[in-house]
């Protein structure tokens, strides 16, 4: 996990749904501590790409090479299912758009945060509980809510809980699928603030899929613009947003309402 090689290398990733293209010819490097944004309209293949990267979908072609702690760069698509699952709950995290998909709604907040710890072998209740309290505090959820179920939380709190649940094992790479979708703007702003702080402080690398350009402007170092399953433009975030080259990117940037 040295900084002289990328954390994640994606080579010619492709996923087809029958005759249709989910995504194709996607290649990029993600370096440690870097945040990559993926933007594009609905149906452009953003979520397909993210799911392929995170091992939730099996791509038809390409390589996803992750720099593991113990074995160095490994093609995660060639890993066995148990190894991929282990990666999925230690070094990787996946934050979903709808917190109901990423949380266990019938399990208390503490149990939700502790699940990943228990999945990798934590067997001391006191330690798990302390870690849960610590993480609830980090995502600004009051300690006395630890035994409440997420169903009694607001949307913003649920999303923050989902983030705590994912980051508790200290992952190095976070996949986020529209982390601010469905939240009102003031809650979005707080969540973004929190995410930015966590990402910077923990030195996380992240791949963030969104259609909200403000999110990538705040969080992402680099940006990829997707259309019809292909990457049409990529570069530094400010560069792409301030000086868009591709016609679609220009359309995307000019579509944002200025308040």
């Amino acid at each position: 996990m040295s900084a002289d090689r990328p954390l994640l290398q994606v080579r010619n990733l492709a996923k087809r749904y029958g005759a249709r293209t989910g995504c194709a010819e996607v290649s990029f490097d993600l370096w440690p501590g870097e945040v990559m944004g993926i933007v594009g309209e609905s149906g452009s293949g953003k979520s397909t790409l993210l799911n392929c990267l995170a091992g939730q979908l099996a791509p038809d072609a390409g390589q996803v090479i992750f720099d593991t702690r113990d074995r160095g760069p490994v093609d995660t698509l060639a890993l066995s299912e148990p190894e991929r699952r282990m990666l999925g709950r230690t070094d990787w995290a996946f934050v979903r758009q709808n917190p109901r998909d990423g949380l266990r709604m019938a399990v208390s907040a503490g149990g939700n945060v502790g699940e990943r710890l228990m999945a990798v072998g934590a067997r001391n209740y006191g330690t798990i509980r302390a870690a849960a309290l610590d993480w609830l505090a980090r995502v600004e959820i009051a300690a006395d809510r630890i035994d409440d179920r997420p169903a009694s939380f607001s949307g913003g709190m649920q999303q923050r809980l989902q983030i705590a649940r994912n980051l508790v094992t200290g992952p190095r790479l976070v996949f986020m699928d529209e982390p601010t979708g469905g939240l009102d703007v003031s809650v979005q702003a707080r969540l973004l603030d929190l995410l930015r702080g966590l990402v910077r402080r923990m030195g996380l690398s992240a791949v963030i899929v969104t259609h909200d350009l403000a999110v990538v402007r705040l969080l992402a170092d680099r940006l990829m613009v997707m259309k019809s399953g292909l990457v049409v433009e990529s570069g530094l975030t400010d560069q792409v947003l301030d000086d868009p080259q591709h016609a679609y990117t220009q359309l995307l940037v000019s579509s944002v309402l200025q308040v």
Partner: peptide, 18 residues
Amino acid sequence: ALEDYGLMHVKLYEDIAR
């Protein structure tokens, strides 16, 4: 099949928490 039993302890955790 994958010996993925972390969830079982979540149930026991919930018992103790409650």
